[in-house]
């Protein structure tokens, strides 16, 4: 798609996200300890671990959305596509343009489906009214929602079913042309059918985007990701290809977790 505005670097870096000694505190509580992670470009990587292990915290520091809480302190670096996003010169808006996020609870805005899709696009492309219909159509087609909603683009996004809302939330990221998609338990509010549909969609997007997905659901991590990271108590325990992590985990904690001994 988008042959017109293709600003890909000639050689894309091997790692989309690269962290060095990332420590994070909420007030006085330390949530992340020396996280060193290298997340491959163009792959689906899942983050698993018990509640409170820091997986969502890590995810939310990759687009710096954590900062809206106001009491978060960070040490260390996160490089996204070889740029340190915690550099003081970095503009948050540009960071978020590159890194889209899907939240645990679908959060379409209370505006029409069409306006939802165009929301990000309009923020970043001032004045260009052209091609809006095309953008809406192509984004909705990519998330397999076009046939269902094409006749009611003026209905509110919040009137859709949860599964459709979540797909809409993924679709509205695409016109902004991010390179990384962060997904924070995107299926946890959905029923099994919706979960399957959204997982299928995530799998469809593989290769086009680097996808980092936090999940509570180990089966989902196994089905829907290529690499898998296991975190515990704010630390990264293991990072492997998904099939290896689930079949031959290197660490005892990982083995205990995937066998359901805790968490």
């Amino acid at each position: 798609m988008n042959a017109i505005i293709d600003q890909d670097d000639n050689q894309s870096p091997e790692y989309a996200i690269h962290t060095r000694k990332l420590n994070l505190w909420y007030g006085t509580f330390q949530a992340l300890f020396d996280v060193d992670l290298s997340i491959r470009n163009g792959m689906i990587t899942s983050l698993i671990g018990p509640s409170g292990c820091g997986k969502s915290t890590f995810l939310r520091s990759v687009n710096r959305i954590n900062e809206r809480l106001g009491y978060v302190r960070i040490e260390g670096d996160i490089d996204v596509l070889d740029n340190n996003i915690y550099d003081p010169a970095v503009e948050l808006v540009q960071v978020r343009k590159q890194i889209g996020m899907v939240f645990q609870r679908p959060n379409p805005l209370p505006i029409s489906i069409r306006d939802n899709i165009l929301f990000g696009h309009r923020l970043h492309n001032k004045g260009s009214k052209a091609d809006q219909d095309e953008i809406v159509e192509s984004a909705l087609k990519q998330v397999l929602l076009w046939d269902k909603v094409k006749d009611r683009l003026n209905h509110k996004g919040t009137e859709l079913s949860l599964e459709e809302q979540q797909k809409l939330c993924i679709a509205r990221l695409l016109p902004v042309k991010p390179s990384v998609l962060l997904m924070d338990e995107p299926c946890s509010a959905l029923d099994p059918k919706g979960t399957a549909a959204v997982e299928e969609l995530i799998w469809e997007l593989r290769g086009e985007y680097t996808i980092l997905i936090v999940t509570h659901n180990m089966a989902q991590a196994r089905r829907a990701s290529e690499e898998c990271i296991f975190m515990l108590m704010g630390k990264v325990i293991e990072h492997q290809a998904t099939e290896d992590l689930f079949v031959t985990p290197a660490q005892k904690e990982t083995a205990d977790y995937i066998e359901g001994r805790y968490g």
Partner: peptide, 27 residues
């Protein structure tokens, strides 16, 4: 206005003013 609307807009790259003007006030 639910906070997730603000979060959604901010994650899409809206500035503080855009969040207020385009999301919070209409809602």
């Amino acid at each position: 206005v639910p906070d997730r609307y603000r979060e959604a807009a901010e994650a899409l790259g809206a500035t503080r003013w855009q969040v207020i003007f385009k999301t919070v006030l209409p809602a």
